[in-house]
């Protein structure tokens, strides 16, 4: 299958700090890819480059067979890139329902009334129905993370970027999240998931991509990657013998 997302020699610096350093990466259509890396490795910056929140210094980004390097964030969203933020960015004074509605109305480009059913469905899926009329700013952190997911799904993405949505969950909550993401994946959405909760990641993704200092450290089958000496050393902090 053709890749849905392709990054070619992408670079991004903040001042003297090279956050993403000549990184290339491809995600096949229908694939679920996990991204691992220590704090500060450049994972979230990578997402911001893909979504257009940040512009690349060098390199090209192709989405669904189209060069999107120069497109602004809203245009990339409308083409089918949905994302959640690691630090939730709710529309705080809008209701939870209206947050999801904004995603459906603009990301999916539909008339407002046509979106209502889908929005309610997503509130049920993310267990936010009872909070529908509350201001999103009043939600707890975990609820905000679920809202991030609901709002991103409302944009009807072809590619969904998940940025650490499993942190802080109990085992049963984590299991429910895994099932939700699996269902989204099964419906044909390609997924790229940044996550420190490795068992959750491995339950969903078919391939891992490990970043360190903005560069690819390892890539491939999840178990093989996790067992590779360089990942053990860098990511787990264990000295390779």
């Amino acid at each position: 299958m053709a890749p849905i997302l392709r990054l070619e020699h992408v670079a991004k610096s903040f001042g003297a700090l090279k956050v993403i350093d000549d990184l290339s990466l491809a995600v096949e259509a229908g694939e679920a890819l996990g991204i691992l890396g220590p704090n500060g490795a450049g994972k979230t910056t990578l997402f911001n480059l893909v979504t257009g929140d940040l512009r690349v210094d060098a390199g090209a980004i192709e989405f669904d067979g189209r060069d999107v390097t120069a497109l602004p964030a809203h245009a990339r969203c409308r083409l089918g890139i949905g994302r959640t933020y690691q630090i939730p960015h709710p529309f705080g004074a809008m209701s939870v329902f209206e947050n999801v509605l904004a995603g459906a109305a603009f990301g999916a480009g539909r008339r407002e009334a046509e979106c209502y059913d889908r929005c309610i469905e997503l509130l049920v899926l993310t267990d936010l129905t009872r909070k529908a009329n509350q201001p999103a700013g009043s939600l707890t952190l975990l609820e905000r993370k679920r809202l991030e997911l609901a709002r991103a799904l409302a944009t009807a993405p072809k590619l969904l970027l998940l940025d650490e949505i499993a942190g802080g969950l109990t085992d049963s909550e984590c299991q429910a999240l895994i099932e939700t993401v699996q269902a989204v994946h099964a419906s044909g959405v390609s997924i790229v998931w940044i996550e420190h909760i490795v068992h959750a990641l491995i339950a969903v993704v078919g391939r891992l991509f490990v970043i360190n200092f903005g560069q690819k450290l390892a890539e491939g089958d999840p178990r093989a990657v996790m067992n590779s000496p360089q990942v053990q050393e860098v990511y787990m902090g264990i000295e390779a013998e």
Partner: peptide, 25 residues
């Protein structure tokens, strides 16, 4: 209106508004 939803979203978070497809500019 629907455009008001976009405007209110921009009020609350410009970053997130862009990420859900609102043309902020």
């Amino acid at each position: 209106s629907r455009q008001g939803l976009a405007l209110t979203a921009i009020r609350d978070s410009e970053t997130a508004a862009g990420s859900v497809g609102v043309n902020n500019e």
